[in-house]
Amino acid sequence: MLQRFRENKSMQGTFLALPTTLWLFVLLIIPLFLTLVVSFGQRSPDGDVIFSFGLHNYIRLFGYSTDCPGGQTSCFDPLYVNILWRSLTLAFNTTVCVILLAYPLAYFIARAHPKRRNIFLFMVLIPLWTNFVIRVYAWMMLLRKEGAINIVLGWFANLLGLDFTPLEMLYTPGAVLVGMVYEFLPFMILPIYTSLEKIDNSLYEAAADLGANAFKTLLRVTLPLSMPGVVAGTILVFIPVMGTFIVSDILGGRQVILVGNLIQRQFLDARDPTFGSAASLILMVMTLIVTYFYTRKFGFGEEIVAA
């Protein structure tokens, strides 16, 4: 038996990969399947799941409502469609802002003296490793009516002799966007840096030699060669933003409800896991579709591991 195992490479491979594969199967794949099953079910009066088969949760999610004004039996209620759309646009806006902020910084680090590169990278890692929840809290302190931003703005107004009424920034969509951008910025900097750092200096020289100025070099050489990093960063930012509920919960209050908040409330407050499961599956399908088309267009970089 031992001899057979020693000679059978395929058996050895299976043995080594089995714990991980099994673990992922039980805790990631079975739960996804369960979520699908539950999403077809119904909520029992005490918040448990009654297993049955129906598409009612999905129909409700896409706007079918029986709670209508004017005594109609059914009507279109855009509540949930709006939430889905809001999540999608927020994730898109966040990703765009993050790329715009991350790119120059990553470029700067990649072109810095090799001795100083580590220090600059280190300065990116510190905020990244500071806890997610703590980082949202920091923005809460900044954006509040009595917070640091208003204090600084007040000083300036005072200096210029202007009247100043503190701005209402917390609990607005803008606050959620800023919070999201702050949370996920390092996830974009690192992969872009990795792909920029790989570009050999002679390529910049070749471009200059062939007549390209700084701007054209950026457009035609630097950007295309760093695309794998941008793609990896986008995946690392877009997907989590779609599903995050803490940022909107703390910085958006009741004003900005995203699909993450919807799901969380179904499981904890509203106690309708079946509807929550359906919303969660729709969220998953949405991210998969976006990722699929995005990576098919730009390729899937190995930079994702580097981050």
């Binding site: 002679s202 390529l203 070749a206 471009a207 200059a208 030699d209 060669l225």
Partner: peptide, 27 residues
Amino acid sequence: PFQRKVNTVFQSYALFQHMTVYQNVAF
């Protein structure tokens, strides 16, 4: 460099990997 009428063949060739042969020469 881009305003000098000299051109360089690099030791590492410095070919743009994201472009085809044609695009490299046309650049």
